[in-house]
Design a protein around this nucleic acid. Structure first.
Length: 967
DNA sequence: TGAGTCCCGATTTTT
DNA sequence: TCGGGACTCA
């Protein structure tokens, strides 16, 4: 610690000429430098979009450590996402250097999970329910199952109390800071009392499984701190500096955590309960002294509060100054990110919100280009426009990495992905399909969870018959009934399966064998390597996770099961599943290499809290990122495409009725716009396919005309290039436009009645590139030379689906949706006046699938010849479709689907076999290769062994040793 | 236990 | 429309 007092240090550091601070304070403006270099005490940083918030936070940490002599382990920084945490951690460690690790950074959830691991055994509910250190974290499915089971036991009618709704209610309560007993104390109405009852049994159910749900991590930990003043005291002593990012999206439960940990004074409740430290009656100096060498910094922007549905409440942010009377407020109002045009757009929209902190974003850049608006005839048209524009930008030297596509709902990605795949643009869906949601991955994780925490009944039930062990539903019911009656966990019941009546001997044996396997084989294998304190000898395993997974795979024959399925083509996705498991093994290995504490506990916690597999190799590649507006928070991109600007999409349908909800939608729009640095595109579709429910209960697809989003009309005229609807809004086709024209595009679009508009001239587009590089290319790819529809496996399905919904799109003429009639004058509507050649060819219901369709003269396929070079770095063959979906055939490509990942981990090597080879297998003994299935790196071998008979093995897994081939 | 059938829900956003 | 879960029957 410093010899000097805090006050002196503060005044010293305020002098910017001190050379030793130069690197930390370099290139900061006055407010930023103030925020970074302020002294002790609470502070509120109002940080507008792009105002260098992350810089301030990272440098503040560095400043605390390097200049104020604080210990890195005395600082905790809370971010909103794991991704942000990771990024910030790297940046901080780079600045502080010295190989000092900055450990305590993460989301509220991960921080609390970590603390719970340490202190949970000090926690006991009034009923005596307890958890132990090796608790697991339940995802929505698991906790839903617990809830359902508990409700069933109490005989609740799930028509009256739909579990889904109850779960949502409980989650909301937890986020609002209600423990089950706190809520029970307040519940008055009948339904409230019933919910309180369910809440309690649900919580008890979680305890039985030694599990927490997401919300518990924070709620229980705050409850723990409240119930154990000693724990709280030791933690507040340890964490002297607390920083919270995205504070506007903090909910009550999280705020409680902040106050319990970060406030040196007690809450009013504590004081009225007769304990704690009050600040009443203290002089200003005395208050300051209390904060000596302590700080609490919250950073946020009310205009970016978009998580109220998760019970985030920006009023907590607004009220922060009241709660901390000696709070220092600093406003960061200088935007370094975006052009002034982009900022003006953002400001003109957000101005329509009522509840805000007054804040003026000053721009630091030039005007830049106008934002571009495009109105597609439908979502496919919209998507084609975006992709075409992307390629144009790419041709001019922008990387795909520079761009992002943002949308309101995940479902919107589908149309875009179809077009991206067709066009061969490499992309990644951020947060879309989740790696850890895949069935096979969940299975393996369940095995790991069960090994780690044998009490985990959900995991037990998930894998007990996977692969088949002859344990069916009835047996499971009897087992759980027995466990309930004995008050023990399911696995404990399984160990003594012989004692359970009415189970067949076979089932009993299978159960106890399985349970014993968990205890005697897997659990011991999960001990990480460490030195024995007495003997000094290393013990445990170097690879506690990957080794364990391998053992589980071997013991259970999980891979063999998949291999067999692949063979029988029972499950055409089985090969993909095997690849996914291999991927998981690599994730585990990598984790063992890099993690600070490479044990099962850390691995499982991380996996439970990270939804997507973050692949750094992938990040380095040039691929386009697709994400929802929510995921985009905190990120920035040179080029942003904001899609789906329609009433019902953005703002979302569910928000149309409420003013508060509408303001949140507007903030979403604001967040989207302010992600952009240089170029902003805003698009919408006049017609969108929906699934809607009829009055008679039936439902079906239907195309709906949606009016333009009100946010469009809130944008100051003149900032958008292209046509945009005026205040009256265009409800439907191009013939109902209500707005103005951009001065650079005097040309009228829209042919009128048909509802299809002629698109604006290329000239003067965005950056005055009058020599458009598009030599009159028809806008759409005819699909003729595209192999898309010929894709194997899932591809067929996709191809079919594509053709069905867009029959006419690919062929123009005779398609079922865009039949000639609608798309009139097919040759005249081309972008930039180009010809839409080949318009009449093809058509039919499935042009894409059949590979037919007119060969439109899109650039890359000019004259049917692929022009290479325009699509640098892009895959040449059609996208391989990984059969990795949990749901067969469902079209939901993800980063794993859109492969051609040059960065994909190298396939494990194996010795190639041919039919007739004699091999040795660790378990099955000697066998003979009967058949080779698949090819290349996906080869599987059908091998006949003596007693085990014929087995399908994956050579990458089964350690096969080739003996001499038989003559 | 496994195969077949029927019905329901799906589309808001995420740790 | 389509997939998954609940339910039924062999």
């Amino acid at each position: 610690m410093n010899e000097t007092t805090g006050v002196e240090v503060v005044s010293a550091i305020m002098a910017p000429q001190m050379p030793r601070h130069q690197d930390i304070l370099a290139r900061l403006n006055k407010e930023q430098a103030q925020a970074v270099s302020q002294g002790w005490g609470p502070s509120l940083i109002v940080a507008g979009a792009g105002s260098g918030k992350t810089t301030v936070l990272t440098r503040r940490v560095a400043f605390l450590i390097k200049e104020l002599g604080q210990d890195a382990d005395s600082i905790m920084a809370v971010t909103f996402t794991n991704k942000a945490a990771k990024e910030m951690k790297t940046r901080i460690e780079t600045i502080i250097g010295d190989r000092t690790r900055f450990q305590w950074i993460g989301t509220f959830h991960s921080m609390c999970a970590r603390l719970l691991r340490k202190y949970v055994e000090d926690y006991k509910t009034p009923e005596g329910w307890q958890w132990s250190k090796n608790f697991v974290i339940y995802d929505e499915t698991d906790s839903m199952n617990v809830l359902k089971a508990e409700m069933k036991k109490l005989g609740f009618d799930d028509k009256v109390f739909p579990p889904k709704e109850i779960r949502a209610t409980i989650s909301a309560l937890k986020n609002d800071g209600y423990t089950y007993n706190l809520y029970a104390a307040e519940a008055v109405a009948y339904r409230e009392r019933k919910i309180a009852e369910i809440f309690a049994v649900y919580q008890k159910g979680l305890a039985t499984n030694n599990a927490f749900d997401f919300d518990d991590l924070i709620l229980v930990f705050t409850d723990l701190m409240r119930r154990n003043p000693a724990v709280r005291a030791s933690l507040t002593r340890r964490f002297q500096h607390l920083m919270i990012d995205e504070f506007q999206d903090t909910n009550k439960s999280q705020y409680e955590f902040v106050r319990l940990l970060g406030d040196v004074f007690s809450s009013p409740e504590e004081i009225s309960a007769g304990r704690g430290r009050s600040l009443a009656g203290l002089t200003e100096q005395e208050v300051k002294d209390q904060w000596h060498e302590r700080s609490l910094m919250v950073v946020g922007d009310v205009d970016q509060s978009i998580y109220s549905w998760r019970k985030a409440d920006y009023r907590i942010f607004l009220g922060f100054q009241n709660d901390f009377s000696n709070c220092n407020m600093i406003k960061l109002e200088e935007n370094y990110r975006s052009t002034s045009t982009i900022l003006d757009i953002a400001n003109s929209v957000i101005r329509n919100n009522t509840e805000r902190i007054d804040k003026e974003l000053r721009c630091n850049r030039d005007a830049g280009a106008k934002a571009t608006y495009y109105e597609g005839s439908d979502q496919i048209d919209e998507a084609f426009y975006v992709v075409e524009e992307l390629k144009r930008l790419k041709a001019r030297g922008r990387a795909y990495n520079d761009a992002t596509i943002l949308y309101r709902t995940n479902a919107q990605s589908r149309a875009i992905e179809e077009v991206l795949i067709r066009s061969g643009v490499p992309y990644t869906v951020v947060g879309g399909t989740k790696f850890y949601d895949r069935a096979e991955i969940k299975d393996i994780i369940a095995y790991l969870k069960l090994t780690f925490n044998p009490k985990d009944g959900q995991s037990f039930m998930r894998v007990v018959n996977q692969p088949r062990r002859g344990i069916g539903k009835t047996s499971m019911e009897r087992l759980t009934a027995y466990a309930d009656q004995r008050g023990c966990s399911v696995i404990e019941a399984a160990v003594e399966a012989q004692r359970i009546g009415n189970l067949s001997p076979k089932t009993m044996a299978a159960l106890s064998q399985f349970a014993n396997c968990v205890f005697t084989r897997w659990r011991p294998r999960s001990v990480p390597e460490q030195l024995n304190e007495e003997t000094g000898q290393p013990m445990g395993y170097k690879d506690p996770i990957s080794g364990l997974i391998q053992m589980i795979l071997d013991d259970t024959g999980y891979m063999d099961m998949l291999a067999e399925e692949a063979m029988n083509s029972k499950d055409e996705l089985a090969v993909g599943r095997m690849e996914n498991i291999r991927e998981l093994l690599l994730v585990a290995k990598e984790f063992e290499d890099v993690a600070d504490t490479p044990d099962l506990e850390t691995f499982l916690t991380r996996i439970s809290l990270v939804s997507d597999l973050d692949n750094e190799k992938l990040e380095k590649e040039d691929n386009l990122k697709l994400m929802t507006l929510h995921s985009a928070k905190g990120l920035e991109f040179p080029v942003v495409f904001l899609m789906g600007l329609e009433e019902g999409i953005l703002p979302h349908m569910r928000s149309l009725e409420s003013d508060t909800a509408m303001e949140e939608e507007r903030r979403l729009m604001y967040v989207g716009v302010t992600r952009a640095e240089d170029l902003l595109y805003i698009t919408r579709a006049r017609k969108r396919s929906f699934i809607n429910r009829q009055a008679d209960g039936s439902s079906g697809f239907s195309a709906q005309m949606l009016p333009a989003s009100r946010f469009l009309s809130e944008i100051t005229p003149g900032l958008l290039s292209g046509f945009f609807p005026g205040a009256s809004g265009g409800a439907g086709g191009g013939n109902t436009r209500g707005g103005g024209y951009d001065d650079e595009n005097q040309e009228h679009w829209g042919g009128g009645g048909s509802g299809f508009a002629k698109k604006p001239s290329r000239e003067g587009y965005i950056d005055d590139d009058s020599s458009s590089s598009r030599s009159g290319g028809g806008y759409y790819d005819g699909g003729g030379s595209d192999k898309y529809g010929d894709n194997s496996g899932g591809g067929n399905r996709t191809g079919g689906g594509y053709g069905n919904s867009n029959g006419g799109r690919s062929g123009y003429g005779g398609g079922n949706q865009y039949g000639g009639g609608q798309r009139t004058g097919s040759g005249s509507g081309g972008y930039g006046g180009g010809q839409r050649t080949g318009s009449g060819a093809g058509g039919g219901a499935k042009p894409a699938a059949s590979g037919a369709g007119g060969g439109a003269s899109r650039q890359v396929y000019r004259n049917g010849q692929r022009v290479e070079g325009l699509t640098t770095g892009q895959r040449k063959e059609p996208p391989r479709t990984f059969a990795n979906q949990h749901t067969p055939g469902q079209f939901k490509p993800s980063m794993y689907d859109n492969t051609g990942r040059p960065g994909a981990p190298a396939e494990p090597e194996f010795e190639r076999m041919v039919v007739g080879d004699v091999v040795q297998h660790a378990k099955f003994g000697v066998g003979k290769v009967e058949q080779v299935i698949g090819e290349g790196n996906k080869e599987l071998y059908a091998i006949t062994f003596g007693e085990p008979g014929k087995k399908i093995l994956d050579p990458k897994f089964a350690k096969l040793i080739k003996l001499s081939p038989e003559a």
